[in-house]
C-alpha cells in the first residue's frame, strides 16, 4: 500500500496523511478488542447516554460511564469542578453524584442499542453495595465493569476501600464469582504502595488495572480565606498529574509485565502523552479532563493522527508493539 501511495504524484505530507488514515490502531485489553486505545475516563461526559454516545462517535475506542452506585446521590455542593489554568488541570469534588443503577440502566440500554462499546463504572460503600449494582446491570451487553475503588471525594467508600488490600481482594473476588464480564479495577494514587493494592486486585481475579484516579488536592481563596470547593477537599486531574500517572504505570508494568493489562489515566492532552503511557506499559488509555474541556470531535482526531504519525516514524505496526517500550 505504501508503495502505491508513494508512486502516485502527491506531496510527502499528503502521503503521510493517507498512510496514517489507513493505519489500524486496534488494541486488546485482555480478551476485549477496541478500535483504538483511547477511552473516555469515568466522570467526564458520562452522566447521560447522549454525551457518551457523542464521545464514542467522535472517535474513541470505548467509553466508561460516570460511577454508578446503588442509589441516586446528589454529590457535593458547588463549586464542585473548576479549572486551574496555570497548570492545565482540574480540581473536582463532585462526590459520586449519580442517578443510581436502576435509573441509569435505561441510559446503558440506549448505549447498547447504539452499539457504543461501554464499560460501566460502579462504586459502593462495601461489598454488598458493589454486588447489588453489579447484579443489577450484569445482564446487559456491555464490555465490562470498572470498579471505582478510588474516589477521594466521599466520606465513606471509594478510596477508603482502595487503600485496604484485604477489602480490594475480597470485593474483586466476590464480584468475579458473579459475572463473566471483565472487571477492571481503578486504583487511587493516594497510597504509599500501589503495587500492594494492585497485587490484591490481581489475586482477586481482576482483568485489568486502571491507574490513576485523581490526587488529593485543595484550593483556598486568599481574599476570603475560604476553601473554594463546596466539599473543601477535592481531587486533581489534568496535566499536573501526568508524570505521576506515568510513574505508576511504569512501576506496575515492571512488577506485572504481561500478567495483567494496564490502562493509563491522568493528564492526557496530546498524542505524545498517549505514546508516553504506552511506552510506560499501558495497553490503552483513558482521557478525561482534555475531552471535557474541548470539543471531543476535535481533540480525538488530533490525538489519533499524532499516534499514527509516531507509529510510522518509529516503524511500529501495532499498539501492542509500543506497550512497555521504555522497559527494554
Amino acid at each position: 500500500m505504501n508503495l502505491v501511495i508513494k508512486r502516485a504524484k502527491v506531496s510527502k505530507t499528503f502521503q503521510v496523511a493517507i498512510i496514517c488514515l489507513l493505519m489500524s490502531i486496534e488494541t486488546f485489553i485482555g480478551s476485549i478488542e477496541i478500535r483504538n486505545p483511547l477511552m473516555l475516563a469515568s466522570g467526564v461526559l458520562g452522566t447521560t447516554y447522549s454525551t457518551l454516545q457523542r464521545a464514542y462517535k467522535a472517535g474513541l475506542g470505548a467509553v466508561i460511564t460516570k460511577s454508578i452506585g446503588p442509589r441516586s446521590r446528589s454529590g457535593n455542593p458547588n463549586p464542585s469542578v473548576f479549572a486551574l489554568h496555570e497548570i492545565r488541570s482540574l480540581i473536582n469534588s463532585v462526590g459520586l453524584a449519580n442517578p443510581g443503577y436502576q435509573t441509569f440502566r435505561q441510559d446503558i440500554e440506549q448505549l447498547v442499542k447504539s452499539e457504543t462499546p461501554t464499560v460501566v463504572s460502579i462504586f459502593g460503600e462495601n461489598q454488598t453495595e458493589f454486588s447489588e449494582v453489579l447484579d443489577g446491570l450484569k445482564d446487559l451487553n456491555i464490555l465490562g465493569f470498572e470498579l471505582n475503588l478510588s474516589c477521594p471525594n466521599t466520606e465513606k467508600g471509594g478510596s477508603q476501600i482502595g487503600t485496604d488490600t484485604e477489602a480490594v481482594y475480597s470485593i474483586v473476588k466476590a464480584l468475579k464469582s458473579k459475572t463473566n464480564l471483565p472487571l477492571w479495577v481503578k486504583l487511587t494514587p493516594n497510597v504509599s504502595d500501589i503495587i500492594e493494592i494492585a497485587d490484591a486486585a490481581v489475586k482477586g481475579g481482576c482483568d485489568a488495572i486502571v491507574a490513576i484516579n485523581t490526587l488529593k488536592a485543595m484550593v483556598i481563596d486568599i481574599q476570603t480565606k475560604q476553601p473554594i470547593l463546596g466539599f473543601k477537599r477535592g481531587g486533581l486531574s489534568g496535566s499536573a498529574i501526568k508524570p505521576i500517572g506515568i510513574r505508576y504505570i511504569y512501576d506496575l508494568y515492571e512488577n506485572f509485565r504481561e500478567k495483567i493489562p494496564l490502562i493509563g489515566v491522568g493528564g492526557i492532552y496530546k498524542g505524545e502523552d498517549v505514546v508516553e503511557y504506552l511506552l510506560a506499559g499501558a495497553t490503552a488509555v483513558e482521557i478525561g479532563s482534555a475531552i471535557g474541556v474541548a470539543y471531543p470531535e476535535n481533540i480525538i482526531r488530533t490525538i489519533t493522527m499524532k499516534i499514527k504519525k509516531y507509529m510510522k516514524e518509529h516503524d511500529y505496526s501495532s499498539i501492542g508493539e509500543i506497550t512497555g517500550g521504555a522497559h527494554r
Partner: peptide, 10 residues
C-alpha cells in the same frame, strides 16, 4: 450546572 465549561455533562 456544575462545571460551566463542558466537563461534567450534568
Amino acid at each position: 450546572m456544575r462545571c460551566g465549561f463542558g466537563v461534567c455533562s450534568y
